[in-house]
């Protein structure tokens, strides 16, 4: 199995731990990733709010570059995943948009023939690798650890190509394969507020608090996420929420970090030292301290 890897901007910034743990886990599973050469920003939600045609052209440049390589395109950030899938959809549905984007690609010396499959690593691990293969790789089962699976909004709706829009299960199955207890998390697809925490702090804070409160009410030890923005929002403002609303301190890990822990990979390879809310205390409490000791 070989895939093309498109990190996106945040995995080179605040979400470095996502990239680190993703690469470590894929390597441990023997799945090969080839870096997308000279990739650019997908445009995210912000570019789309300013200029749609330019946003699609930028997204399409990544698709054109990916088409030169044989594998499906893996996009860990939910924003990138949505934008690239949406770009494909719009080019198929609207000939005018397609014409402008193709013209722009040609001017940049590129071409795109609609042959790239855009996949989220969750999709690849759940469906191509499979929960059974994941379970076989587990050397340190996370028995007793209560994990809330939080999918966020953009990887399940509405341009996604796998899983249910209301009750997604892919991450639940992967987490269960590690031996952890998967909490029934009713807000698993409710929006974390995206960039609102930065732009409208009082609104963003309440959206984040709602999710943290629910995770705690369901007695989760850890929240598992698939998106860099969700991770940042849920983790970075717990201090402020503790001061202003309710004391909640709960580690927020990428699902790849949790898989890596169960695979017995060294914490540093998984970027665990980059956590603002450390996971080690709750692992120790559950008698899983060995999970973070280096092999």
């Amino acid at each position: 199995m070989k895939y093309t890897y498109y990190p996106g901007c945040s995995l080179r910034g605040t979400a470095r731990a996502y990239e680190e743990s993703l690469l470590a886990v894929f390597q441990a599973l023997g799945v090969e990733l080839e870096m997308l050469e000279d990739w650019n920003c997908c445009g995210a939600t912000a570019y789309m709010s300013v200029d749609q045609l330019q946003a699609f052209a930028l997204a399409a440049r990544n698709l054109a570059l990916a088409e030169r390589l044989p594998g499906d395109l893996i996009t860990p950030c939910s924003g990138c995943y949505l934008v690239l899938n949406k770009c494909q959809r719009y080019m198929r549905e609207y000939p005018g948009i397609k014409r402008v984007v193709h013209g722009a690609l040609t001017a940049a010396g590129l071409a795109y023939g609609d042959r790239v499959k855009v996949r989220h690593p969750l999709d690849v691990l759940a469906h191509d690798v499979g929960a059974e293969a994941i379970a076989r790789r587990v050397v340190r089962p996370l028995t007793g650890l209560r994990v809330a699976p939080y999918y966020g909004c953009q990887i399940v709706r509405p341009y996604a190509t796998f899983d249910d829009q209301h009750h997604p299960q892919a991450m639940d199955r992967l987490l269960a394969a590690t031996g952890a207890t998967v909490v029934d998390f009713s807000l698993k697809t409710r929006c974390c507020g995206g960039t609102q925490k930065g732009t409208l702090p009082e609104v963003g804070l309440h959206l984040v608090h709602t999710l943290l409160h629910e995770a705690r009410a369901r007695q989760a030890d850890v929240i598992s996420v698939v998106c860099s923005l969700c991770q940042f929002n849920l983790e970075a403002f717990q201090d402020q929420i503790a001061r202003e609303l309710e004391p909640i301190h709960i580690p927020v890990l990428y699902f790849t970090q949790i898989l890596g822990l169960a695979f017995g990979l060294p914490p540093k390879q998984l970027g665990l030292q980059r956590s603002l809310v450390p996971v080690e205390p709750c692992l120790a409490e559950r008698g899983l301290a060995r999970a973070t000791s280096t092999v």
Binding site: C9, R12, G13, T14, A15, R16, D38, W39, N40, L53, Q54, A57, L58, R61, V100, V101, G103, A104, L105, T106, A107, A108, G109, L110, Q273, R274, S275, L276
Partner: peptide
């Protein structure tokens, strides 16, 4: 935690981006 990165990220072929956007 090494997450505050100020070094400016960039594509290598900026001209390609400019040509793309001009053509749009």
């Amino acid at each position: 935690t090494g997450r505050f990165r100020l070094r400016a990220e960039s594509v290598e072929r900026r001209k390609e981006i400019a040509a793309l956007l001009d053509a749009v």
